[in-house]
């Protein structure tokens, strides 16, 4: 019975995601009625279709909406994986420094005019995760306090490095600044073509490792006693989660708390088993970022707000609430 309910909730979320994506194609500086959006998508050759509408949908909005969706997926699934790996439901890519590491890597690439921004983001992110893991891990499980302290200290260090880079590389200041605030403004097909395959592969790898993730929630030794080859599984999980995070950060800057909100909601709705939690997190993450981007574009239109600021406004109070509630893992 439980499984039917989970499946129904997943389909419902998928429906909401489709609706919000269609809405996001219609919203913006120029409003396009949904019927026009539909026509532009599925009958682009229809002579009755306004050419401007078609251009806006295809050249401006579709890539951006899809990018918002995959970024949400990437942050949410990597959040799910980090939470199991650190045995701590506060382990959002933003909190543990994974996003900050990616940001530093990408900033270095931008200021040094090095073209492989995603690769640089990946390297930065991987180093940050490894550092937090080593610093925070005292004994079998990473306590919330250690994790947050290590993440905060490392994030401070990383953002100081980013500031210094921006200070010295002043010509690229605006580009870097806009990017760091987390936004999708001006993002288009090339960004999507880089980010989407990386994020989808990362998400599929993590989903396929749902049972190792379940086992790891009992701690590394307990998982090993179940026959898990810790070295390989942990390497594969960290790599996949970090690829997904880095690709998301390289495409749209630091968008915090999605990796915290989505997995938490998913666990509440479909249970803690990663076989269900990961797909549900992915859909909810996509939904969150698509909706946040809709708000970012419409609240003060034609001004565009940074998406990262909106997700933080929603996510940070939630984070504090989780922390205050104090559950077994917070010790």
């Amino acid at each position: 019975m439980f499984r039917h309910r989970a499946l129904a909730l997943i389909l419902l979320t998928l429906g909401l995601l489709l609706i919000s994506s269609l809405l996001s194609l219609s919203l913006g500086a120029v409003a396009i009625p949904l019927s026009e959006v539909w026509k532009a998508l599925f009958q682009p050759q229809d002579p009755a279709l306004n050419r401007v509408s078609r251009a806006i949908v295809w050249d401006l909005r579709l890539a951006r909406t899809l990018l918002a969706l995959v970024i949400g997926v990437g942050l949410a699934v990597s959040g799910s994986a980090y939470q199991a790996l650190f045995r701590n439901p506060l382990a959002d890519p933003y909190i543990i420094g994974a996003s900050g590491g990616a940001a530093l890597g990408a900033t270095m690439a931008i200021t040094l005019e090095f073209s492989a921004v995603t690769a640089a983001a990946f390297t930065g992110s991987l180093l940050a995760v490894a550092a937090v893991y080593l610093i925070a891990q005292a004994g079998g499980h990473v306590s919330a306090v250690n994790l947050i302290l290590a993440g905060a200290a490392l994030s401070a260090l990383l953002s100081a490095a980013v500031s210094l880079l921006m200070f010295f590389g002043d010509e690229d200041l605006i580009e870097v600044f806009a990017w760091l605030m987390g936004g999708l403004s001006g993002r288009s097909w090339p960004h999507l073509r880089t980010a989407a395959p990386l994020i989808l592969v990362g998400a599929l790898v993590l989903w396929s490792m749902a049972r190792p993730l379940d086992a790891l929630t009992f701690g590394e030794e307990s998982a090993q006693a179940l026959g898990l080859n810790l070295f390989w599984i942990r390497s594969a999980l960290v790599t996949a989660a970090t690829i997904a995070t880095a690709a998301a950060v390289a495409a749209a800057g630091v968008i915090g708390f999605v990796g915290l909100l989505a997995p938490h909601m998913a666990r509440r709705l479909v249970g803690a088993s990663h076989a269900w939690q990961i797909p549900m997190s992915a859909l909810l993450g996509g939904l969150l970022v698509v909706l946040a981007d809709d708000l970012a574009r419409t609240l003060l239109a034609p001004l565009e707000l940074p998406v990262g600021a909106l997700t933080a406004l929603l996510g940070a109070p939630f984070f504090l609430w989780l922390l205050k509630r104090g559950e077994p893992w917070s010790q």
Partner: peptide
């Protein structure tokens, strides 16, 4: 292992099934 390790709300059946890996 010591039961303090069970911190994630997996169902009993999901937990037990992990042993089959």
């Amino acid at each position: 292992p010591q039961q303090s390790g069970a911190m994630w709300p997996l169902t009993v059946e999901e937990v037990v099934a992990l042993g089959r890996a």
